[in-house]
Amino acid sequence: MSRVTDYAAVQPAPTLADRAKFLAFLLIAAAFLGWSANALELSPGELIHSMPVIGRYLARMFPPDWSALQGLWDPTVDTICIALWGTVIASIIGLPLGILAAKNMNSPAVVRLTSLTILNVLRSISELIWAIFFVAAVGLGPFPGALALGVNFGGILGRLYAEAIENVDQKPLEALRATGANHLQTIMFAVLPQVLPQIVSYNLYWFEVGVRSATVLGMIGAGGIGFELVTTIRLYDFRQTSAILIVILLLVTVIDRVSAILRRAIVK
């Protein structure tokens, strides 16, 4: 039995039916795109027509009014803290659920499916919706923002953790089971050490995403720099808006860089 290397010999030439199927697929895709453009009232003409208006708004943003930086320090720190605590809450939610949801952890089917469902719900409701809910529940400020990020990212991280756990080398797990170690001990000593680099890397990445997300959350009253941003827009003070946007840009860039460096250092 020799290994097959000549792929052309293995893969049959497309039949007429194959070609017809592909053509049908293209037509359906094109029809769908056309229909959805119509639903959107997509109109390139309108866009070109309104260019001057967009230009006028942009012009009103210059030069940036740096007086906006006054009092911006605290909201900026708030934003970072929202992202930080959001990620912490997310890991606290995600780790147990991720372990229960991982196929190779042999949870009872009911438990596994329940965990998967919870993760799905947390993940598929956007952090903005969660934020509206938590602002209503606990009031304005950074705290509901952190909760919203924590819950939504918990769903995402839980799913990622579960996938990481599913890819773990099973042999050490078996060795620990053979010593008489119980399930939790096996997880602590054979599973977590294997997935820790990935967990740290995911957390750093979602902290980055969290910083960007937290600026948006501010706009609906969940504290942070986004709240300041939206205030300047409401006051039509676009020169202050641009100053704040530049700060956000710098903030996100710095966080991205730092976290990229940390991740590279950790994943070894």
């Binding site: 620990l176 010593t179 008489g180 170690a181 119980n182 001990q185 000593f189 054979a190």
Partner: peptide
């Protein structure tokens, strides 16, 4: 980890 089974979780 050979000692785990002797100790509480």
């Amino acid at each position: 980890s050979g000692r785990l089974s002797y100790r509480p979780t």
